[in-house]
């Protein structure tokens, strides 16, 4: 799982990535030092809430990109978890999306990753 996040982080413009549960709790995290666990979980919870609300109102939508002045936050709905990638505004979103899809497809076939996702799975409220 960490290797997958590491692969995503290698894309130019990606600052860090993390995987959290549907409640915003960290499952795996690969971000530079400086942000502690509770800060990351705060970000995760906000992103999960936003994603849940948006996905409910727009069926079929699986990702959300938030544009800030200095950062882009990309959240992907994995149903059993949420992948969050923090990037600089200059990131090539298409290249990021392609890489994420490659990693997610590999995770689908990885029993270890699937076991961890099953163990941490919680229904969304």
């Amino acid at each position: 799982m960490k290797a997958g996040l590491g692969e995503i982080n290698l894309i130019p413009g990606v600052w860090g990535s993390l995987l959290c549960t549907n409640q915003g709790e960290l499952i795996e995290n690969l971000t530079p030092p400086g942000l502690n666990k509770s800060t990351l979980e705060n970000i995760s919870r906000h992103m999960v809430e936003l994603l849940s609300g948006t996905v409910d109102s727009i069926p079929g939508l699986g990702e959300v990109v938030l544009h800030y002045q200095d950062r882009k936050v990309f959240a992907v709905d994995l149903e059993r978890a949420v992948l969050i990638v923090v990037c600089t505004p200059s990131v090539d979103i298409s290249l990021l999306r392609l890489n994420i899809n490659v990693v997610l497809t590999r995770w689908e076939d990885d029993p270890g990753v699937q076991k961890r996702l099953r163990e941490r799975f919680v229904e969304r409220i």
């Binding site: 090539d92 298409s94 290249l95 392609l98 899809n101 490659v102």
Partner: peptide, 21 residues
Amino acid sequence: AELVERVSLEIVDSRKRAEFQ
């Protein structure tokens, strides 16, 4: 990358799409 992403969306089979990507 955008071009690759756009053409890959034409591949219906998700496994084949991921392999192409």
